[in-house]
Amino acid sequence: MAVTNARFRQHLRVGGELALLCYIDHPDQDVRLWSRTGTLKWGGFSWRGIGVLGRVTGVSKSTTLEVKQVVFELAGVPVDSLNLVSDNVRNRPIKLWLAAISRNKVVGEPYLIIDDLMDRQSLSISDNGTATLKITVNVGFWTIERATNIAWTHEAQIAKYPDDSGLSLIPSLANKQVNWRRDP
């Protein structure tokens, strides 16, 4: 991990405390959590402490071309509070930072570990009536095989490829009636 922030590096050298900060662009509402207890103020937002209830697994850095799954887990959630949780998180942003912490304040700039899109969310309920919520993120080169979310227009095509007017035919083709007949 190459940390360029001098205050963060100095904090690491003296054995200072570290914490994870997690931003989830959840369909129900933005979620900002951190790996300690209490409320942390950083970046103009309040980050809710989840302590030992939260866990992130599968985070690693390598130079190989591979797809890794990182799982964000929140355990001990009361089941009755989950009726507002949507399960449609696919392709929504999630970010994870490693932050240097001193007296419940962030020292320097946190180090961004993950800035990717969520894949799926799962829920399991234990015998004691609490739930565990897991969000899976595919980190790496999985986007190579994913279709782009771009819709081209004739104007966008002309702006990028001035000599190509092929998309100007699409509106006429969309509503074209084709009569199929058998030749004698």
Rank of each mutant, 00 (worst) to 15 (best):
G108R: 05
E109G: 06
I135S: 09
L169M: 13
D127L: 11
D116N: 13
Q157H: 11
A147L: 04
R120E: 14
T148W: 02
S122C: 07
I113P: 08
T153K: 00
E109A: 04
K134Q: 15
L123T: 04
P162Y: 03
N104L: 03
T153V: 00
G140K: 05
E145C: 05
T130E: 13
S102I: 01
F141L: 07
I125D: 04
S122A: 03
E109W: 02
Y111L: 13
S102C: 04
I170L: 10
D116H: 03
D163V: 02
E145D: 09
I113A: 12
M118G: 09
I135F: 01
E145M: 06
S168W: 08
N138R: 02
S122W: 04
W142F: 11
L117R: 12
D115W: 06
S102W: 06
A159I: 13
S168M: 12
L123Y: 14
I144Q: 07
G166V: 11
R120C: 05
V106N: 11
A151L: 08
S102L: 09
S126E: 06
A156E: 06
S102E: 10
E155H: 00
I170V: 14
Q157G: 03
Q121R: 12
T143H: 12
V106Y: 09
S168Y: 14
K134F: 01
L112S: 07
N128A: 07
S126T: 13
H154P: 09
P162A: 12
V137Y: 01
E145P: 02
K105E: 06
P162R: 15
G140A: 01
A156N: 12
R103G: 10
D115L: 11
V106L: 01
T130Q: 06
R146E: 15
L112P: 02
I150T: 08
I135M: 04
M118I: 15
H154A: 14
I113D: 09
P162S: 08
L167K: 00
T132L: 10
G108S: 03
S126H: 15
R103M: 03
A156H: 09
Q121A: 05
I144A: 06
A156W: 01
Y111T: 04
Y161H: 10
E145S: 03
G108V: 02
Y111N: 05
G129C: 14
I114R: 05
S124M: 05
A159S: 09
K160D: 14
K105F: 00
I113T: 11
Y161F: 06
I158C: 13
H154I: 04
T132M: 08
G166R: 11
N149L: 04
K105L: 12
P110T: 02
R146I: 10
D127M: 15
A159E: 15
I150S: 07
K134L: 08
N149D: 09
F141P: 04
L167G: 00
N149F: 01
P110E: 09
I125Y: 04
T143M: 07
S168E: 13
V107M: 10
A151T: 05
R120M: 12
K105P: 03
H154M: 12
D163R: 13
Q157T: 12
G129R: 03
K105H: 13
L117M: 13
D115R: 00
N128R: 15
S102Y: 07
